[in-house]
């Protein structure tokens, strides 16, 4: 799980082009949207595509996203349970 969290932080920085942020700057329980990392709705779409492309997870219910993308912790937990690749 720890390796997956590190992998997710690295991917988020790369995919969302967060130039000024390092892996160490993101805590596992930091909010990804809003006051935390400050991601927005376009970033959410990028993360949905990333889940599909890298882990084979298709989010069919958009409401799920709010819980899944709450933090690195929640993302890692959801991916561990649902990944197909």
């Amino acid at each position: 799980m720890e390796a997956l969290k590190q992998e997710l932080k690295s991917k988020i920085i790369e995919v969302l082009n967060l130039e000024d942020i390092a892996i160490a700057d993101i805590n596992d329980d930091d909010a990804l949207f809003g006051d935390g990392l400050g991601l927005d709705s376009i970033d959410a779409l990028e993360l949905i595509v990333m889940l599909d492309k890298d882990y084979g997870i298709k989010l069919v219910d958009p409401k799920e996203g709010k819980t899944i993308f709450k933090s690195i912790e929640t993302m890692a937990a959801y991916i561990s349970e649902n990944r197909v690749k």
């Binding site: 995919v15 376009i42 779409l45 990028e46 595509v49 599909d52 492309k53």
Partner: peptide, 13 residues
């Protein structure tokens, strides 16, 4: 690269 799948929004926008 992705065989017309996984199209991300940012570069399109």
């Amino acid at each position: 690269d992705n065989d017309e799948q996984f199209l991300t929004p940012t570069s399109f926008i």
